[in-house]
């Protein structure tokens, strides 16, 4: 039987070599392209005939817009409007990546740390630049707790810096680990359906099958939740950089 981890294997579909760089178009790239086209398609098609009473497509587009809009308003406030396009694109891309992964035989590109780390680094570098642009060198005050005697700063500043630098790691690992663990778990339990079913004349397969059904529902919830968490953390980081305490 196939290994539970085989679903995460990157397979090159079109080989592209640029010097020593392997720029092959892989199954991961394919699903990123699908997510991109699907996301743009829903929004463009949905809003092409903007009606007062929305149709199905328009409802989806409006729901997503409202959802992210409210999220930004609640976390950053009205200043956050400027960052709406970025957060919205990020949210839709991750959400579609997670959801596409729930389709059987599909590839989940968010289950690869390199993808999520790249997304998290974009957020992290962007937020840091934003902080320096808004506050200049005052941004370094971020790392200096007020009212602490001098010698203690020697200890506390490195801790604060490490804590700040660990943001992209926890941000990316959260998404990647959730997707990886969920998909692996489903695959492992799916293996039990066959394994137990084969020795007990299919009776033993019922329980794991029921379990997979429940886990799939849970996994869909997690797929949404993780996209949401990524978006809300991005909002909170931007909020931190805008209004330093």
């Amino acid at each position: 039987m196939a290994s539970p981890l085989e679903q995460f294997k990157i397979k090159p579909l079109i080989d592209i070599q640029a010097g020593s760089l392997d720029l092959s178009y892989t199954n991961s790239s394919l699903f990123m392209t699908i997510a991109l086209v699907l996301g743009s398609g829903i929004l463009i098609l949905g809003m092409s005939r903007a009606a007062v009473i929305p149709g199905r497509m328009q409802s989806i587009a409006e729901l997503m817009y409202e959802f992210v809009g409210n999220l930004i308003r609640d976390t950053i406030g009205s200043e956050g409007r400027k960052y709406f396009p970025f957060i919205f694109s990020l949210f839709v891309f991750i959400l579609l990546g997670n959801m596409l992964g729930m389709i059987p035989y599909a590839f989940t590109f968010t289950s690869h740390i390199i993808v999520t780390l790249a997304l998290a680094m974009v957020v992290f570098v962007g937020v840091t630049i934003l902080g320096f642009a808004k506050h200049g060198l005052h941004f370094f005050k971020f790392f200096v707790p007020p009212g602490v005697p001098g010698p203690m700063l020697l200890l506390l500043v490195p801790i604060e810096v490490i804590s700040y630098l660990s943001r992209p790691i926890s941000l990316s690992v959260r998404l990647f680990a959730n997707m990886l663990a969920g998909h692996t778990l489903i695959k492992v339990i799916a293996g039990f359906v066959f394994g137990l079913g084969a020795v007990t004349f299919a009776v033993g397969g019922i329980l794991p099958l029921a379990l997979i059904t429940a886990l799939t529902a849970l996994e869909i919830l997690i797929a949404f939740l993780q996209a949401y968490v990524f978006a809300i953390l991005t909002c909170l980081y931007i909020n931190d950089a805008l209004h330093m305490h």
Partner: peptide, 29 residues
């Protein structure tokens, strides 16, 4: 040295989470 500092930083984040400063990183009064 940095193993210990990193460990403390990790706990600092946990402390922030549990005292209601949530996801915010960086010092807040």
């Amino acid at each position: 040295l940095f193993l210990l500092l990193g460990f403390v930083a990790g706990f600092m984040n946990v402390y922030r989470t549990l005292t209601g400063q949530g996801y915010a990183v960086g010092y807040q009064q």
